[in-house]
Computed example of a mutant assay.
Amino acid sequence: MYVAVKGGERAIDNAHAWLAEERRGDASVAELGVAQIREQLSLAVNRVMAEGSLYDPDLAALAIKQARGDLIEAIFLIRAYRTTLPRFGASHPVETSAMRCDRRISATFKDAPGGQVLGPTFDYTHRLLDFKLAAEGEVADAPEAPPQPGPTPHIMGYLNREGLIEDEVPDEATPPDLTREPMELPADRALRLQALTRGDEGFILSLAYSTQRGYARNHAFVGELRIGGVGVEMDIPELGFAIELGEITLTECETVNQFKGSKTEPPQFTRGYGLVFGQTERKAIAMALVDRALRWKELGEEDQGAPAQDEEFVLMHADNIQATGFLEHIKLPHYVDFQSELELVRKLRREAEGSAAREAAE
């Protein structure tokens, strides 16, 4: 047994060494630096920060490098590191109305107050490979940076002047922290939103797409999508007032959904909401659609039996780290379990063959 264990350790050490070699790749090619990943693969970095629940572009870039580009593995590394960090306090809720928007669009109002800012987006690009990017040493001419706009009010407020959209009353209670406490169902909206923003982008996207295809009858308009910098403030007891710790980039999406009314609510528009670290607009839009689908009960709607309306199904399967752990554990040794299964199948086959032989003899 001791020899087997030592042999297993050597095999694991060799696997680690081989992994490091594969990660480095061809030594004749310049090594990819963390700064390069942070600056040039920023959308991947944003996803790792969002689903890893830790806003640190440098650490996210390091995790991507260590994981050889496997974003779920990188998210796992970030979450594991996050558990080692002390918590000094809680920041104030961010004021997204004070966001300095790099991108801000609305699909509901052409002449949105404050204007539409297209920003850096793939929306208007041709999906054709640009082989000029493969030319080594090429540097594109950078356009002059536009002046940063000041605080931009939310478009939904203008729609609500006519009372056509539901009011959102802020909940003064401190929401539960999904990173420190296990999820309990049924979950309130604050907890659901935490789970969705940490959830796997592909899973949330698929659920959102299902709502658009009729599985929840969730036809939505993007009331506003904005991306930009927001200051983070925290109270300092020694000073007696709050100070700004820094600025983070967020993507916020508010959707407008038609609502025919219920026994308690008049016909009006309702809301879906998404808020994610970094420039992650696809995730924010998908999150808003799923958020709205999960609100069917509180709005007095009929349960359509759609997957996106099933709170337990959505929240318990959205986390890619939990899913990965449960999925990949089956590749670990299960020798004893399989031998018992194998013996059971053999026994059942013997019994079936014996029964068949008796029936033939009769």
Results as ranks from 00 to 15, higher is better:
Arg24Val: 07
Asp26His: 09
Glu31Met: 07
Leu32Tyr: 00
Gln36Asp: 15
Ile37Val: 15
Arg38Phe: 00
Arg38Thr: 03
Leu41Cys: 10
Leu43Glu: 11
Leu43Phe: 04
Met49Ile: 04
Met49Asp: 01
Ala50Trp: 00
Glu51Thr: 09
Gly52Thr: 05
Gly52Arg: 02
Ser53Ile: 03
Tyr55Leu: 08
Asp56Cys: 12
Leu59Ile: 01
Leu59Met: 09
Ala61Arg: 01
Ala61Tyr: 00
Leu62Arg: 14
Leu62Phe: 05
Ala63Leu: 00
Arg68Gln: 12
Asp70Gly: 04
Asp70Asn: 15
Leu71Val: 06
Ile72Met: 08
Glu73Arg: 14
Ala74Asp: 01
Ile75Gln: 04
Ile75Cys: 07
Leu77Glu: 08
Arg79Val: 01
Thr84Gln: 09
Thr84Ser: 13
Thr84Lys: 07
Leu85Ala: 08
Leu85Tyr: 02
Leu85Val: 08
Phe88Asp: 13
Phe88Ser: 13
His92Tyr: 12
Val94Glu: 09
Glu95Val: 13
Cys101Tyr: 00
Arg103Leu: 11
Arg103Trp: 00
Ser106Lys: 07
Thr108Val: 14
Phe109Glu: 10
Lys110Tyr: 13
Ala112Val: 13
Pro113Phe: 04
Gly114Met: 03
Gly115His: 01
Gly115Ile: 02
Gln116Gly: 03
Leu118Asp: 14
Leu118Glu: 11
Gly119Asn: 04
Pro120Thr: 11
Pro120Phe: 03
Phe122Met: 12
Phe122Glu: 13
Phe122Thr: 15
Asp123Phe: 09
Tyr124Lys: 10
His126Gly: 12
Leu128Phe: 06
Asp130Tyr: 02
Asp130Trp: 03
Asp130Glu: 11
